[in-house]
Write a protein that binds this DNA or RNA. Structure first.
Lengths: 175, 175
DNA sequence: ACTTATTACTTTAGATCTAAACCATTTAAT
DNA sequence: ATTAAATGGTTTAGATCTAAAGTAATAAGT
């Protein structure tokens, strides 16, 4: 895919890079990619576990509920359910009961769209906004403290490389 | 925490870095950490979605089942349930029914430990080993293709930085 | 020996998730 | 206009997950 004569994809080709780990049958590049994937997963799990616990201990709520509230907050005028499930990257069938419960708890509200009768616009109630306003800085500080041992330059590099990775994935998804 | 005079933790201090985003009330470093966390989550979700779909389409199985099989494979002589849940970073109560189903499908087997009557050693059956041997290279190639647009140097950097992040998290967990 | 943790695993209750089927509405294509 | 396709949302079935309680066996402290 790359324009460079020595792109990684070339080097991955077993004709160009016959050295494989005999035990696994995987090339060096494949091994590296798998290790990246494992670390990605580990970091995600570790952070999620901490955030989950803190949300429960400090706010008696759950991560998916917080995620929904935080996402709704990003569109103050309300947003359709589909946008929620897209942004949160979960299936649409998952959002409905989550929103149901948050509506029951009077933290968010559903308003039918005037333009499209299929659409339900979801937005925060003042109670929901209040609750979220307390959670946002706490959540931020938790993540912050987990990354405190990463110097700023590394953090900037990591942010950039994760952006590259995301683009690589999206490019691969298209084909 | 850092030994350097201008460590990130110092700069995070609002006295030293009074510039905050007025809208969010978060410092630049906090914003950066949150963005890293978001990208981490996005990449993880995107890869998981793809792997999940491919496992279903090509092998008619699920990601948690594959994870359990792959983890069991790493300890050929069998390993206790606890080690499984530790390495897969899920609660122990989650592993039991997953293992139950895989045993029912004759892909793995449980053997009581001779040394400790509480322990159940889990290992692959030959059927399970056969199934897994087909999945491993496929899984690797999927991950590989998702990262194909990342050049090798970036991949190495990313691997290293994710290691740094992991260490930072673990250090923070201890306190 | 005896009591008290601790550990390995299971069980329970309930929330969350996926995939797939479904309904209603809107859009596109004749 | 009429049909066909796409879209937004819900529902369903079933798997996966967490947290917390429970059970049995081991380890540690006195």
């Amino acid at each position: 895919m790359g324009d460079l004569p020595l792109s990684k994809t070339d080097r991955k080709n077993k004709v160009n890079n016959p050295k494989s780990d005999y035990e696994t049958g995987l090339s060096d590049d494949e091994q590296l990619d798998l290790r990246i994937w494992l670390r990605l997963l580990t970091c995600t799990h570790l952070i999620e576990r901490r955030v989950r616990k803190n949300l429960r201990d400090d706010f008696d709520t759950t991560l998916p509920r917080f995620d929904v509230l935080a996402q709704i907050d990003r569109a103050p005028d309300g947003q359709p359910m589909r946008e929620l499930s897209n942004r949160l990257m979960v299936t649409n069938g998952n959002i409905t009961p989550l929103v149901d419960r948050l509506v029951d708890d009077n933290l968010i509200k559903r308003d039918p769209s005037t333009e499209d009768r299929r659409v339900q616009h979801v937005s925060l109630t003042s109670e929901g906004q209040n609750a979220l306003d307390k959670m946002i800085p706490a959540h931020s500080s938790w993540v912050n403290s987990l990354m405190a041992n990463l110097d700023r330059e590394s953090a900037l590099d990591l942010h950039k490389l994760l952006g590259d990775l995301k683009n690589s994935i999206l490019k691969a998804e298209i084909e």
